[in-house]
C-alpha cells in the first residue's frame, strides 16, 4: 500500500521515523513544492529503504546516479563506470561489484555513499513543502547501490542538526512546558553531540523544557529543537508535567488576627467545597460491576 502526503503535514523526520520503526522496504519519492521551474534541476528525489535502513538515494530515476557520481570524481576515466557496470553480475550491488573487481576501494565506496545519502538527503530537510510518496513494491536498484546502508535515524540526526530554518517544523516542536522521558533502556547508542547529551541527562519526566534551557543556558527554542531531534529518532518522548490545576497559597497566618486564623483552620463543611485532589490518579473511579457490564453489552449488541 502506498503512503502519500505533504511534507508540511508529515515532515521528513517523521516519515523517516515511521519507515525505520516499521522496518519498511521500498522507494520514497520526494517532489519539492512549488516544483522547480529551472529545467536543469531534477524534479524529484528518490530514497530507497531496506528494512528501515537507507540503502541509496538519487535525484534521477534512470538508475545512472551512481555511475554519474563516479564519473564526476574522475576515478575511472570518463564514462568508464557505465561500461564497467555492464559487466557486473546482476545480483550484487554495483558498488560491491566494482570493489570485488578491484576497481574501487572501500574508502571510495564510503565516500560515494556519503555523497549519495548524507549530502543529498540531508539537504531535503530544508524543503519548505513537498509531496511524498512511499511505494513498498520498489526494491533498491542494484545499479545505484554501493552495498552500504545507514539507519534512517542517523540521517535524520545529521539533517536536523544542519537545518537552519525551522519554520516548517514550528508546530511540531515539543511544548516548552512539557518534560521529557526516555523511550529506550539504558543509554543511547546513536552518536550524540554534547548539547544533545546534556538534554538527554534531563529525561526525568519532571523538568520542563523551559527549565532545561535555564540550566544549560541555551534558548528555549534551541532546547525545543534538540528535543525534537531526539524525539524523532525515538530516544525521547515529551510528556506533560503533572501539575495541580491550582497551586493553593499557604495561608499567611502570621499576618491574620488569631480569630480569623482559627476560623480558617476549621472550615464549616457545609460552606467550603471539598478540594479536588488532582495528584491522585483515579481516586474517584470505582469499577463497574459485572452484572452492569453484562447488561450493557447485551443492550449494545441488540442495538448494533
Amino acid at each position: 500500500m502506498a503512503i502519500t502526503g505533504h511534507l508540511a503535514e508529515f515532515s521528513l523526520a517523521e516519515i523517516f521515523q515511521f519507515l525505520e520503526q516499521g522496518h519498511k522496504t521500498g522507494l520514497l519519492t520526494i517532489t519539492p513544492l512549488p516544483e522547480p521551474t529551472d529545467h536543469h534541476t531534477s524534479r524529484s528525489h528518490y530514497i530507497w529503504f531496506q528494512q528501515g535502513r537507507i540503502t541509496t538515494a538519487a535525484n534521477r530515476s534512470d538508475g545512472r546516479g551512481l555511475v554519474t557520481l563516479i564519473d564526476k570524481r574522475g576515478w575511472l576515466g570518463s564514462h568508464a563506470a557505465g561500461r564497467l557496470l555492464k559487466s557486473c553480475d546482476l545480483s550484487t550491488p554495483a558498488g560491491l561489484c566494482f570493489k570485488s573487481q578491484g576497481i574501487l576501494e572501500a574508502d571510495q565506496l564510503r565516500m560515494l555513499f556519503y555523497i549519495q545519502v548524507m549530502q543529498q538527503v540531508c539537504a531535503l530537510f530544508a524543503l519548505e513543502d513537498g509531496w511524498f510518496h512511499f511505494d513498498s513494491s520498489q526494491k533498491t536498484p542494484l545499479s545505484e547501490a554501493t552495498g552500504l546502508s545507514a539507519p534512517a535515524l542517523d540521517v535524520t540526526l545529521s539533517g536536523l542538526r544542519a537545518l537552519k530554518n525551522w519554520t516548517v517544523l514550528e508546530e511540531k516542536l515539543p511544548d516548552p512546558n512539557a518534560a521529557l522521558i526516555s523511550m529506550i533502556d539504558g543509554k543511547p547508542t546513536l552518536k550524540l553531540k554534547q548539547a544533545e547529551w546534556q538534554v538527554w541527562e534531563f529525561t526525568d519526566g519532571r523538568t520542563s523544557l523551559k527549565e532545561i534551557a535555564k540550566h544549560l543556558q541555551l534558548s528555549v527554542r534551541q532546547i525545543q529543537q534538540i528535543a525534537f531531534r531526539l524525539i524523532v529518532v525515538s530516544l525521547l518522548e515529551e510528556v506533560p508535567i503533572l501539575k495541580p490545576v491550582s497551586t493553593p497559597q499557604p495561608p499567611l497566618i502570621s499576618s491574620q488576627p488569631p480569630k480569623a486564623a482559627a476560623a480558617e483552620a476549621t472550615p464549616s463543611p457545609a460552606k467550603k467545597l471539598p478540594p479536588s485532589s488532582p495528584e491522585t490518579v483515579n481516586a474517584t473511579r470505582e469499577p463497574v460491576s459485572q452484572s452492569f457490564l453484562n447488561n450493557l453489552m447485551g443492550f449494545l449488541k441488540n442495538q448494533a
Partner: peptide, 18 residues
C-alpha cells in the same frame, strides 16, 4: 497524517493521568 504526532501527545497526556 499531520495530526498523528498530536494524537500521540494526547495519548501520552491521558496515559499519564489515567
Amino acid at each position: 497524517p499531520h495530526e498523528f504526532r498530536y494524537s500521540r501527545r494526547m495519548l501520552a497526556f491521558m496515559r499519564q493521568r489515567s
